[in-house]
Each structure stands twice: as C-alpha cells, then as structure tokens.
Design a protein around this nucleic acid. Structure first.
Lengths: 115, 115
DNA sequence: TATTTATTTAACCACATAGTTAAATATACA
DNA sequence: TGTATATTTAACTATGTGGTTAAATAAATA
C-alpha cells in the first residue's frame, strides 16, 4: 500500500476509466453525472474513481447546489512527468551506444553480471 | 484489472520498490539478488516485482549460467511520458491565464480585467 | 553424484481495488 | 411539507497485489 505522492499519482493513472475522466476534465469542469455518462458503470463506481483521483490530488471538487463540479488539478502530473523524463535517454538511445560499449568492456573480463 | 499497455506501465510505476529497481537498472544490468540487496524484502517478493515490470515491458531478463540478468527496457515509458505531456499546459498555466481571461470575459460580459 | 548458489513456484495471508445494489444525504423546487 | 435530482456511503463480492515461508528448479562445482 504505497502512499507516497508519486505512487498515488501513477496508481491513479493506471486505470483507463480514470484517464478518460481526466481527459474529459481537461476540457473543463463537469459534474459527477456528466463524468459517468460515457461509461457503462454505476455512479458509485465513478465516485470511487474520483476519490482515487482526489487522493492523488489530480481532481478537486467544488459545490454548486446539489452538484459537485469536478476540476482537473494537473500539478501532480508534473512530478510524474519529471520522474519519467529521467529515463528519456534510455529510450532515445542517444547514449545507448555508450552503454553498449561499456557492457562490452565488462563482458571481456568475466562472465558474471556484477554491478 | 486493466490490461492495456499504458495501464500496465503506470501500474508498474506505482510502487516505490519497482521505481527503485528501475533506477538501479538504469545504471546497468543486474542479477535478481543484486536488485534485491537494498531492500528489506524476500527474494520471491523481488521476483514478483520483476514479473510486474516484465509484464509492462519495462524489464527483460537474459540467461547467464544460474543468473538471470535483468535489463531496463525504457520504451514503454515513452508512451507514458507522451500521455502525461498532453496535460503540460494545465500545470504550466501559460495558457491557463488565457483561460481565466476568457472566462472572465464571459462572466463580466464586457468588463476589462487588469493585467 | 552430491552440494552450493541463484531464482522461481506454490500456498498462504492481509489488504486494496473495482464493481455491484440499496440506502442515506444534500439541495432545489412545487 | 413533500418530492425530485445529484451524489455519497454502506455492505457485499471477486480479484489483484505485496508480502511471507517452504519447496522446486537450474546451473556450476567439489
């Protein structure tokens, strides 16, 4: 049960329904019923998804009569993006050739993987 | 149990132990025992974490005698980064001020805001 | 062959998550 | 006041996750 902020953010993003909710909120505020409309799940299920998103700080909820309009709060995504960006060089293989070179050097003086 | 690639990637990142494993592998290949060493958890627990990472395509495992050296495969992070990047303008509020301005125009119906 | 080392699998536990339906709450309105 | 609408909470089920210990598997070595 990881409860740090980054883990909560990634966990919240690890569900397609919640990502769709965020995508909808990126267009503007919406009520819970409006958010639920595209999905074939019950309203309590949507409430639960919203709780996960709120716990991650990705969504805030206001008050307007009996509606509780939901709003995107994108700041936590900044840390998530920052964490992932650290690995950009690994998928852009700019330095991967250096990695390969170092690995080859290692491979020449012994067989075992040893850090 | 979301099984699409993006969900699997985010789910894999939603655990600090797994993020630490990826950080270690960013420095180079490592055996399971080496990966387990910094953590106060059993080897089977590490094996399970590695399975999650492999299912997400973030780690691959080779064979070298009785060792199974693990290697970072960062490509799935590219999609994760891409998804998050869509929301960059929302946390960088470069355009948020324009949003606010437009909203204010609508609300005031002609009043000119400061700035 | 027997032993040691590295890793995985099996079986289990506690708990979180994603969903359900039914009931409770909050607000607007006739 | 009572009713309709919007949302949440409660209670429950099924499943996934993260951990354990004990046993099984794979490969090197004495």
């Amino acid at each position: 049960m990881p409860s740090d902020a980054l883990s909560a953010t990634f966990a919240a993003l690890a569900d397609p329904t919640r990502r769709a909710i965020l995508a909808r909120l990126a267009l503007g505020e919406a009520s819970v019923t409006e958010l639920a409309q595209p999905f074939a799940i019950s309203l309590p299920a949507v409430t639960k998804h919203l709780k996960v998103l709120q716990r991650a700080g990705l969504v805030s909820q206001g008050r307007q009569a009996q509606w509780r309009p939901c709003k995107l709060e994108a700041e936590p995504l900044q840390n998530a993006a920052g964490w992932i960006e650290q690995y950009r060089r690994h998928w852009e293989q700019r330095l991967d050739q250096l990695d390969d070179y170092l690995r080859e050097l290692q491979a020449q003086d012994g067989g075992k993987p040893q850090g």
